[in-house]
Simulated assay, not measured.
Amino acid sequence: MRKITIILCLLSCLSSTLFAQKELTVGQTVSNIALLSTKGTVYDFRAQKSAKGFIVVFMTPTCDHCIMYEKRVMALDKKYKVKGFPVVAIGPYGDNPIKYPLDAMPEMKKLAVSKGFTFPYLTDDNFKYTFLLGIKQTPSAVVFQKKPNGLLIKYIGKIDDEEDEKKVPKNKFVEQVVNKMLQ
């Protein structure tokens, strides 16, 4: 009985490892992202014809760090949208108001309106892109470059190196990546 239990446990671990979706990394491509926005419509990345790429920021309404970054995220959108790299925010918990009532779509909508977000705020169904892109904390950014076969991942990580909104960051990681792509 003990051997059977051990074998079943090993098979279970092995099968979950084999069938788990592998995280994507810089240099890999996502065919497309299409998610429900706080405006009630589906935002389809490939349908954004004027975009050269996207600055995607994973953020939630109740995360203290996200709250401190709201103005910087809006500034990124203002600066780079006109250059073809709009900001798109994704709420990892947006589709689950039962488990995450303060971070789900109703609160995302309130936040987007009250802060005057100039960018789409999308909900990630069942953490699909959160897991696929290896997002472990918020806020986190992903920079995509639009290619004929999809969205090429150019960066995954922090927006910059300064969490305190009253201090000026020394390294603006997202801006550095996008500026290099615009050269």
Rank of each mutant, 00 (worst) to 15 (best):
A104R: 01
D95G: 05
P97V: 08
P86I: 04
M68D: 14
L18M: 15
L76H: 08
F85C: 08
G91Q: 13
Y69F: 14
P106E: 07
K49R: 15
M74G: 01
F58L: 01
A112L: 10
C66R: 12
V57K: 00
L35Q: 07
I159P: 05
S37I: 09
V30D: 13
K52Y: 02
L111R: 02
Y93H: 12
V82Y: 04
K146Q: 11
I55F: 03
T38A: 04
D64Q: 14
G91M: 13
Q137A: 12
K49C: 07
G94F: 03
T38S: 05
F85V: 05
K81I: 05
D77K: 09
K128R: 09
L36D: 14
I90V: 08
I67W: 08
K49I: 09
K115A: 14
Q137T: 14
V56L: 08
P61Y: 09
V30Q: 13
E23Y: 00
P101R: 10
A112W: 07
K158E: 15
D64F: 04
L18P: 10
Q145E: 15
F144V: 03
L102A: 15
L24Q: 10
S50Y: 02
G91K: 12
K49D: 15
D124S: 05
T29S: 12
K146S: 14
I153M: 06
P101L: 07
R46G: 04
F58Y: 08
K39V: 06
F58M: 02
P106Q: 10
N96K: 07
P86T: 07
V42S: 14
A47E: 13
V57Y: 01
